[in-house]
Design a protein around this nucleic acid. Sequence first.
DNA 1: CTCCAGTCTGTTCACGTAAACATTCTGGTG
DNA 2: CACCAGAATGTTTACGTGAACAGACTGGAG
Lengths: 351, 351
Amino acid sequence: MSNQAGPVRRGVKGHPKSGPSIGDVARLAGVSAQTVSRVSTGAEAVRPETKDRVLEAMRELGYTPNHAARALRRGNFRSIGLIAHQVIRTGESKTIEAVIEAARREGYSVSLVDVETPSSSDVSDAVQRLNHQAIDGLIIIRAETATPTTLALPPTLPVAVSDSRFVGHHPAIGADQVGGSRAAVQHLLDLGHKTVHHIAGPDDSGPADLRATAWRQTLQDAGRKVPAILRGSWSADSGYELGRTLAQRKDVTAVFAANDEMACGLIHALHEAGREVPRDVSVVGFDDIDLAEHFWPPLTTVRQQFQQIGNELVELILRQLRQRTQLSDFHGTVAAPLIVRQSTAAPRKRR
Amino acid sequence: MSNQAGPVRRGVKGHPKSGPSIGDVARLAGVSAQTVSRVSTGAEAVRPETKDRVLEAMRELGYTPNHAARALRRGNFRSIGLIAHQVIRTGESKTIEAVIEAARREGYSVSLVDVETPSSSDVSDAVQRLNHQAIDGLIIIRAETATPTTLALPPTLPVAVSDSRFVGHHPAIGADQVGGSRAAVQHLLDLGHKTVHHIAGPDDSGPADLRATAWRQTLQDAGRKVPAILRGSWSADSGYELGRTLAQRKDVTAVFAANDEMACGLIHALHEAGREVPRDVSVVGFDDIDLAEHFWPPLTTVRQQFQQIGNELVELILRQLRQRTQLSDFHGTVAAPLIVRQSTAAPRKRR
DNA sequence: CTCCAGTCTGTTCACGTAAACATTCTGGTG
DNA sequence: CACCAGAATGTTTACGTGAACAGACTGGAG
């Protein structure tokens, strides 16, 4: 069957590829394999000249330790799996960056898998794929509405979820979506707007749901009329589309967009229709992406502290790893402060 | 020393953690380990009822294959290392996303490492870290000016670099930076601008260098005056800072920014100074990030086809893996078309 | 010189898996 | 019934590493 399998690189006959092993180095240096191992792991009690001889042999053979064998022997991989929904979305990539950096500080690398949709089945697939990878812990960003109960995880794998609701089976860290959203809406009301419209994220998204609910609640608490909700898809394009409709309605004076990208698209549509921001319409976003400050006008928005979230996610994993237990009842919240810039103002006096 | 090392989970005495093994499953199912292996790898010639029995035993024990052992046995990891400079930067995250997706399609996962600066030493560090990880190939995004010769790579590790210059030691894929930049500058000249100013990326960046050189060359070819170059750092903030200066100079009517973020900051500064885009100043960016279309005004920019670049990077790795050879003389280019939107126009007639 | 403590190095073994080879079983043919 | 081909399963072995233990060497004290 495989007698024409192409040129196998080395190995007398047995296994494919892989470079020189610890044994080859040992032979060349005239020492035992164990001594080579000692040098390669961090040299406890190896005579300097022996060590040099070994290092020299390593260099000569171009030896690099075989990570698989090492991991097999040690029982860990020094690697964390990371499932993200959409790498592109600024919020996520900032969290990812923070996770990668925090992991690196602890000597861990990160194995990244993305899922097309936040559906439970897609996440399960991703978990499956990672399962077959070499990971010591698993971080899930934006579990959205997926119910982690259904995920077939190895029973002892430490997990941490970036989510603002406590989902009940895994420890979670999340921004204070509700507090941030309430502050955004209240800010607009305080400026004198009668009510606030809302461009929400997709309805299968947990954070979108939290923000929409907080928006509605804040309006109700203030005794204001709650306008019909508008559904976007997080993308600037969707904000633009919805904005084209909103721009026609003169009664719309304040809009809370569920993220900065949609706010950007919305402002685009308003400008295009000749409605000025914030003179005619005030706009608040969510996330505080790097560009938000440089939109025109600079965007008032709710800041998500992704860096901190990323750090805490890694911390959660490491804590479980160190204690050799799984946490399940932990839920941390990270503040989401309102950053007031120039896209909001009091409504124009009319009549 | 380690006699109080905490509760070790299982294992009669020997090794730490790790779940049930193939042997445990075999015992429970009343078959040999090899049969379990056959089921877990893809069942060639296992009687259906035996297979069911094995699967049942796996479920009962919560068995997941040990990836380290598997990788050791098979000699590969089905994993690709990815070194990126800044995950945040839109250009990079789009490439990363494409790489991850392409890798997934081929059954590979991606191990992501970021470097703080594109300096050769930082990249070397990253390689070191990945070296100790389990990877079959290595993709480096934005090698910038790092000279890959100095990287201590395992001699047989397939490498692919995302870079627009042919660096000579590893196969590279890159956008047509020069063509795109020339088109951008030429577009502004064709509109009637006397000359074009340039906000460049940092001077340790290869792509920034290519774009700046192409800009200068195009102006020279057209016999135009070449203004002093302005150095940014890729960030919108840096574009804004430089823009505050530029906005004061009435002779500036056209600016080519080396990326969209800086273009955004620039436009912010111009607006703030009361200079309108494109009426008073035309602006062209580079990258065509998702938001560029929704800036105000929508940004004329050079599109980088990150998706395609990501795909080809993975393809390059796989080709080397399949052929068991390293490529070194390959260099592919991906077109970078100019996308004309509304941030560019003919200069106002004066005098 | 003998003995001992300490330092350095070597030997043995197991980690979990899968390839190669060996064996058993099945059912059909002469 | 003997024989055989092919399917199904079991046995042996090696992948590269590092822990545990064992042995060899050093130099100083008695």
